[in-house]
Structures are given as structure tokens and as C-alpha cells.
Design a protein around this nucleic acid. Structure first.
Length: 546
RNA sequence: CGGGGAGUAGCUCAGCUUGGUAGAGCGCUGGUUUUGGGAACCAGAUGUCGCAGGUUCGAAUCCUGUCUCCCCGACCA
């Protein structure tokens, strides 16, 4: 059996290419040997193509093999399937806890934003103008086509003011804030909402950039710049911690340059992750909005000296893009690898039942083991354990769970049962690697083993990233690094003192951008900027990105 | 939004150039045999050929429009 059956089908076409000079010869060949490669070995890997063969295609195949999501009939929008949604739910549970622990409250604001709200902050409006879906009508009328007899629904009831489907909610939340803040005693106002937003992206990709996506957006208002900045830094750290502890993704914490900032923000903090094709992903952001939105929307309060002031606001968010990030950060050529904290199932127990007479005993033993494992907890949640009792071949089940990325697979067969052992397979190790353990020992050690899977993924990702960041001090070296001959370049870190114009010039020319100014590298020994030669203590990280 | 490719069974695709009423493999269902492994054999089900028009006696095939997906680019908190 072949995981990717089209390999057989592709065989003759590939030969055809080789023999392209003589199509008739090819026809003759195939009719004589209808199956030119009958001994096709099963693929070494569950996913075709591999990461090195074609990374974007590999990504899509992983998403499909793991049954995470699929494209829908709505342009640019995906259907998130149960296995994929459970990952998002795990991310939500964790982050929601962290937000509440730091004093934030959840609320919900409308999906539709009056067009005039978006116009209030000019820079913000411009930033999102090209990707807004607009609602212009509020009813449909049935019209029968006199020829075909088919009923068509025609929009009528034109709205006097159109609504925009929120691409982000600063403006409508700001409008609420302006009603809610009267006195310094109302501050800080710390609000989060879990919501969907819509950005009419030109080039959608499952999880990474879809037209509609799920996210959380925090919005806060403060008395002073200092307090608001503290909030953005606190959230910045919170995101970094969550990515490390939940998704096993190491990030670089940094600040965006002016050119890369959120439209309307005074400063934008980012956590940047590197995935396995060495591209960067902005995995989370935290913005200090200054008084820009407060002034545009009249969000004021009376301060401790009885003077009316504008609040200082922040906004911050992470989205379902995190799911795409974790797929690309950890998965291998056998499919998804899930960090245990977000795995919908952390342990799959597969009963091995070659003999009918011992079948029931083995299944009972598996279920008894599952019950004992579920009593234990990891990351403040009980272990998620499932016994796969389906009447399918053992190999089929095994590979399904490999592709779905379950951290641990446990098998119990008649021999194991007799010896009081289990067979353990870890998703962070090769698919055929097995470890036999005393069952009691496994029950004792399981939480440690799971934690070790997490740690292995984190270290692997960190090593990969560190190996693919190079220091660069010269423009010539920099230019060479990004030219066509280097088709998969890693990140560069450079001394940087360029202006916005200088940054835009080099970005355009070399198709490269500053990912961030890493916050722990803004006070380095003075060195000449690689582009302008001006002495600087600042460093910038450059890379291609999603 | 520009360039390229593609939409035919659940999946991967063949058929289209030279119009004649739809195929393969895998998957699925049933049966038999297997089984520490991504099984073998037998039998079976599944498609208004992306959608809408047009040309034609006849369209998966030709023409026009449209929608969607993929790749590259521009764009992207």
C-alpha cells in the first residue's frame, strides 16, 4: 500500500519526459508494461514531497495528512477541522489564563465597524484600506428568472453608511473606551476579546494568512505613556514565554522599525520565530499606540490634578497563524509533530491483538493504563490519552497517529502483557524507533517523558535557528547573501543606523526586510552600520518572511 | 493586482490537440485469508467533468464570461 498512490501513476509520465523525443515509443512501452514499476517500495516518508524537495507543498500535505483544515468554498477562508481546532483551543486556554492572571477581562465587540470609524485615524485607515470587506446592503429580495425559472437573491436595502468587516478592532473598541473612561479611577482599562477578523489577503495560505482568521486582540488604556509602555512590554514577554512553554518555539523579542510598524502605532514590539525553511514569522505583536487613537476618537479622562487628558492605548494579538508557525517549526517528513501542551491527544495507546483469544484482555489492559495515565497532569491539565480500539491494521493506526503528530504512542501486545511491559514510541524520534519499558516504570516516568519531548523540540528549534543566524558587517557580504544564487538564506544580524528611507531603499532592492531590532542587542559595542558606516550600538535582524 | 499553472469519483490524476454521451490507481463497502504492523485476493458502490452562457444533431473536449485553488511577484499588525 502506498501513502501517496499517485507515485505509481506518476511513474510513466516521468519516463515520458525522459523519452520525450518519441511519444509513440512511450505508448508502446506502457501498453506492453502497464505497470512499469511493480516493485515500487513504499515511500520512506509519510509526506510527499519532503521539506527539502518542496517546502510550501510539504506544508500543505502535512496540514492535510494531519486533518487539520481544508480550503472552503469561500475565497481565502478555511474550514478548521476538529484536530486543528483542538490545537487552537489549547492555545486559547493557556493564553486566556495568562491574560486573566495579569488583570485583563474578556469582552466582545461588533464584527461590523461603521466606515466612518475607520476614517478617524488616517494612518490606520490607509494601512488597512486595500484589504477590507465592505457590507453595503441589509436585505435580499427573491427574483425569479423568467426564462430559467430559477430564483435569484438580489441585494436590496442599500445602507446609508457602509460597514467594514473588522480587520482589527481599534476603532470600534476605541469608541467604547471613549464612553467608559471618565476619571483616572477608571484606568487602566484592560480588555481582551477573542474574535474572528477579516483581511482580504491577496495570497492566502492555510493558517498562515487566511482572509478570515481567529485571534485575540487585547486593548488597553492607561493614564501615562510609561504605564502603557509597561503594558506592551509585559505582554511582549508573556507572548515570548507562552511560545516557549506551550509551543516549544523560541522567539527573538524585538521592536519593529518605523517602516514595519502597525499603522497608527508609536511603537510595535514583535516576537519573531524562524521556521524550517529559514523564513521568519511574526508570531505575535504588541503595540504602543500613544495618544493617536485617543485623540482621533476622543478618549479622555480627568487626571489626578483635575485636568482633562487623552489616554495612552495599547493593542496586542496572536492569531491562528500560531498553528501554522508550530507546523513549520517542528514537523518532519512523516507529518505533524505536536508540542505536547497543545496536542489534542498526548498519548495514543494501540492494542496489538494478533490472537483473538487474548484480544479482550489486551484491550482491557490498555484502557486500565489509560485511566491511570489520565490521573496525572502535565502543564496544569490532566494527560489526554486515547485508546485506539478501531478494527484496523496496526500499521495503519500507527501511521495515522504519526501523521497527526501525537507525542507518544504506546503499544501493548500479548507478549508485553505477559512481561508487564509496554512498547513506547516518541514522535520526536524516528517513526520506527521503539523502546520497551516496564509498565509501572512508564506510569511513573510518563510526565517526565512528555516534558522531555517538549524540551527536545524546543532545543532542536533553537539550535536550528542559531545555526542559521549569521553576523554581517559589510554591505558586499550582505548583498551576496540575498542574491539569487543563495536560494534558502538564513537571517543576518548587522550593525544598523539607517533611516527609514535607507531601509526602504535596501529592502526594495534586495527584497529583504528588517525583521526586528532585538531588544537585548540595542546597546552593543559601537560598530559602523553595514550600510551607512555611521557608528551605532544598535543591531538589526534581516530575513525573508511569511 | 501582474505573470504562470490547474479545476474530471473522497484523494492523485488520464481523457481534451483530431466533439459521439466518462476511466485508472489508491481510498470506501461486503466477503475470505492474514496480522507486533502502513496486508492479499474476490465482489461492489461512487461523477449534471468548477459555474454560467454560446457554437453544434451532439460538448469533459471548441468559444466567451465568471469563480476557486496552487506557484512566482507586488502587498501583508
Amino acid at each position: 500500500m502506498l501513502e501517496n498512490p499517485n507515485q505509481i501513476g506518476k511513474q510513466p509520465r516521468d519516463s515520458n519526459k525522459l523519452l520525450s523525443a518519441s511519444p509513440s515509443f512511450f505508448l508502446c512501452l506502457t501498453s506492453t508494461f502497464p505497470n512499469p514499476a511493480p516493485d515500487m517500495a513504499k515511500p520512506k516518508n509519510a509526506i510527499t514531497p519532503t521539506r527539502s524537495e518542496n517546502f510550501p507543498e510539504w506544508y500543505q500535505q502535512v496540514v492535510r495528512a494531519a486533518d487539520l483544515a481544508e480550503n472552503s468554498e469561500t475565497r481565502g477562508c478555511m474550514v478548521i477541522k476538529p484536530w486543528g481546532f483542538a490545537i487552537w483551543e489549547a492555545i486559547q486556554r493557556d493564553l486566556d489564563g495568562r491574560f486573566k492572571a495579569t488583570g485583563h477581562e474578556n469582552a466582545y465587540f461588533p464584527l461590523l465597524i461603521p466606515l466612518s470609524y475607520l476614517e478617524k485615524e488616517a494612518e490606520h485607515a490607509e494601512g488597512f484600506a486595500t484589504e477590507c470587506a465592505v457590507v453595503t446592503h441589509h436585505r435580499l429580495e427573491a427574483e425569479k428568472d423568467p426564462e430559467t425559472g430559477k430564483t435569484k437573491m438580489v441585494p436590496t436595502g442599500k445602507l446609508t453608511e457602509p460597514y467594514v468587516i473588522r480587520p482589527t478592532s481599534e476603532t470600534i473598541i476605541g469608541a467604547a473606551f471613549s464612553r467608559w473612561t471618565k476619571s483616572y479611577r477608571d484606568l487602566p482599562l484592560l480588555i481582551n476579546q477573542w474574535a474572528n477578523v477579516m483581511r482580504w489577503e491577496m495570497r492566502p495560505r492555510l493558517f498562515l494568512r487566511t482572509a478570515e482568521f481567529l485571534w485575540q486582540e487585547g486593548h488597553t488604556a492607561h493614564e501615562s505613556k510609561k504605564e502603557a509602555l509597561e503594558e506592551t512590554h509585559m505582554i511582549h514577554q508573556l507572548y515570548s514565554d507562552a511560545l516557549r512553554d506551550l509551543l516549544a518555539i523560541p522567539v527573538i523579542m524585538g521592536e519593529k522599525t518605523e517602516a514595519e510598524r502597525f499603522p497608527g502605532a508609536e511603537s510595535t514590539l514583535t516576537v519573531e520565530a524562524m521556521v524550517q525553511d529559514k523564513k521568519a514569522i511574526q508570531a505575535g505583536t504588541s503595540h504602543y499606540l500613544g495618544q493617536n487613537f485617543a485623540k482621533a476618537q476622543n478618549i479622555t479622562f480627568v487626571d489626578r490634578e483635575n485636568k482633562e487628558q487623552h489616554v495612552h492605548t495599547t493593542s496586542w494579538g496572536v492569531s491562528t497563524r500560531l498553528v501554522g508557525t508550530l507546523i513549520m517549526a517542528h514537523s518532519d517528513d512523516d507529518g505533524l509533530i505536536l508540542p505536547p501542551r497543545v496536542a489534542p491527544q498526548q498519548i495514543i495507546i494501540i492494542p496489538v491483538t494478533p490472537k483473538e483469544e487474548s484480544r479482550e484482555t489486551i484491550i482491557d489492559a490498555c484502557q486500565a493504563l489509560a485511566v491511570r495515565l489520565r490521573e496525572q497532569s502535565y502543564g496544569n491539565e490532566n494527560l489526554r490519552v486515547q485508546v485506539d480500539k478501531r478494527d484496523l491494521g496496526g500499521g495503519v493506526k500507527k501511521w495515522e497517529w504519526v501523521k497527526k503528530g501525537v507525542p507518544l504512542r504506546v503499544e501493548i501486545g500479548p507478549r508485553d502483557l505477559e512481561e508487564g511491559k509496554i512498547c513506547l514510541q516518541r514522535r520526536d524520534q524516528a517513526a520506527n524507533q521503539k523502546t520497551f519499558m516496564e509498565k509501572e516504570e512508564f506510569v511513573r516516568e510518563v510526565v517526565g517523558i512528555i516534558a522531555d519531548v517538549h524540551q527536545t523540540l524546543l532545543e532542536r528549534a533553537r539550535d536550528f535557528r542559531n545555526e542559521n543566524i549569521a553576523e554581517c558587517a559589510e554591505l558586499a557580504v550582505f548583498e551576496k547573501h540575498w542574491d539569487e544564487t543563495n536560494d534558502n538564506p538564513g537571517w543576518l544580524i548587522t550593525p544598523w543606523a539607517g533611516t527609514r528611507d535607507e531601509e526602504e531603499e535596501i529592502s526594495k532592492r534586495l527584497k529583504i526586510a528588517v525583521r526586528c531590532l532585538p531588544i537585548d542587542k540595542q546597546n552593543e559595542p559601537e560598530a559602523p552600520c553595514f550600510m551607512t558606516g555611521k557608528p551605532t550600538k544598535s543591531r538589526a535582524i534581516w530575513g525573508r518572511s511569511y
